[in-house]
Design a protein around this nucleic acid. Structure first.
Lengths: 207, 207
DNA sequence: CCTACCGATCGGTAGG
DNA sequence: CCTACCGATCGGTAGG
């Protein structure tokens, strides 16, 4: 049993991870289209064509960056909320976890998906499609807990889980962008309170 | 009295206007940093250095584009709402006017300020500062009507106009981005209903 | 306002 | 993974 490192995690894998971590953070500031192979090479100490070779094209790099950001989002926002009781509590924990993630500045440009969604939302292509799919998955997570909360009587029976989750998602994305623009934590607190209120009072919206 | 055109609006003024109109629309899709003098020259039929000369630098062009977008925003969103009765009605009209503006796709990339705020929010500089100032002015407009609504008894006395306007601003920005990403008008309808509900029910938020 | 040009940087390729 | 290179495009300048 030699002490040499296991081949199961190659240098290439490690390089990929290093690049993706730097790229995801950079993308929240410069945009996912503003990523440059040369800059990533400099940051990670590789050659430009070395970075290129690991991904095959800039678009493949961008798709890999979105996948990496998803992993981070699950770890930083979703998983901590899973300890809360399913239903209203977990729904609230997911929303507050998102706002904590933004306020913590896990990425310098706030929430990766809010930032990139605003950038690629009006630019059709595989990157937009993947970002939209991940966003749907996130809203679906909120909707599932909203549904459970209604089923358990924690929210009014006439509350539409899909509309409620859409409304919450909109508030969270908006909070991220307003926070970036002003660097003022009061807007995060305002949205924390608004989310809590929304989940405490009956859903009296007209259809 | 010769029939020749008045000198009060020079060719340069007209060229500026043509460029700014194209640039504002382009910026909502490609980003305000993605604007290129060469592309704007092609679109407007000028030479690249002709465009450059009218503004002096790319940054000056960007600042002029933000100013133009402000004019459009006032014309498309603010002014139509001013016919509504000051207070709760005008506050609602401003919010619904914003959502109409987004759904109408006055710009291909939705609301200019939401798009550009997400882009430059984490990038310090004059462009960010100007965008932030215009955003503040918009929220201030909402806050003034919220204040009036409270004073007139149209909203509960314990409703904080600043928090309410921040909350509304967040919902509107979030709606814009979600609509871009999915091209689904249902999210706009959901937010229309949420805004109406928010302005109809008491402000029961904890401080 | 134009043509013609500058140095820098881009994504990607050749060849190893 | 590397060096060396490609054609294209960038913001900006010179000179008129």
């Amino acid at each position: 049993m030699p002490a040499t490192r296991r081949p199961s995690r190659s240098d290439g894998d490690r390089s990929r991870g290093t690049i993706l971590e730097a790229a995801a953070a950079l993308a929240t500031v410069e945009g996912i289209d503003g990523l440059s192979l040369a800059r990533l090479a400099t940051v990670t100490g590789m050659s430009k064509s070395g970075v290129f070779g690991l991904f095959g094209s800039k678009e493949e790099l961008q798709l890999a960056v979105v996948g990496h950001a998803r992993t981070v989002f699950v770890r930083e926002v979703v998983e901590p909320a899973l300890t809360a009781k399913p239903g209203r509590s977990q729904l609230l924990a997911l929303c507050l976890g998102y706002l904590d993630h933004v306020e913590r500045r896990d990425y310098p440009g706030g929430c990766f998906f809010a930032s990139v969604a605003a950038e690629v939302g009006s630019r059709p292509g595989p990157v937009r499609d993947l970002v939209a799919a991940e966003h749907d998955a996130w809203i679906g997570l909120l909707a599932a807990q909203a549904h459970r909360a209604v089923a358990d009587g924690e929210l009014p029976a006439d509350c539409d889980p899909v509309r409620l989750s859409g409304e919450l998602g909109v508030m969270l994305t908006g909070a991220d962008i307003a926070y970036l623009l002003h660097d003022d934590p009061r807007i995060i607190d305002t949205v924390r309170a608004a989310v809590a209120t929304r989940l405490a009072s009956p859903d009296t919206e007209p259809s």
